[in-house]
């Protein structure tokens, strides 16, 4: 086994071991918050809200069609913009893609 392969295996193992606390934290949070789910409510109490949260809550309460359109458009636009930006970063890192040959 080459030194490079040993090092990359060791590095991967370290990263995997580092993920254990995250999984452990997930288990603890899950146990602590057992069944403390959010309530299903059709209207949002806007008294304690301000800023963007208030705008969203008002839209949710007053015009559900507008809320649905806003969610769909925001997700589409944000998804496209973020993908474009990530693509630029990946290109800068030398991970540019073009048409590939399909190897099995």
């Amino acid at each position: 086994m080459s030194l490079k392969r040993i090092l990359s295996t060791a590095l991967l193992s370290i990263v995997l071991v580092c993920t254990i606390p995250v999984v452990d934290q997930a288990a603890r949070t899950a146990i602590a918050s057992e069944k403390q789910e959010t309530a299903l409510s059709m209207t949002i109490d806007t008294k304690k809200l301000s800023g963007i949260n208030l705008v969203i809550a008002r839209m949710y309460n007053e015009d559900r069609v507008l809320y649905a359109a806003m969610v769909t458009i925001v997700m589409a636009v944000l998804g496209t913009v973020l993908a474009f930006l990530t693509d630029l970063v990946l290109k800068a890192l030398g991970l540019e893609v073009s048409r590939i040959s399909h190897r099995e």
Partner: peptide
């Protein structure tokens, strides 16, 4: 598991799937 009601979990997840897949499809 982290506290979302199941209906919110499904709806939020589907919105995320829509957004993330646009770039991947491209």
């Amino acid at each position: 598991i982290f506290g979302f009601h199941m209906a919110f979990a499904i709806g939020t997840d589907l919105s995320n799937i829509f957004g993330q897949t646009i770039g991947a499809v491209r």
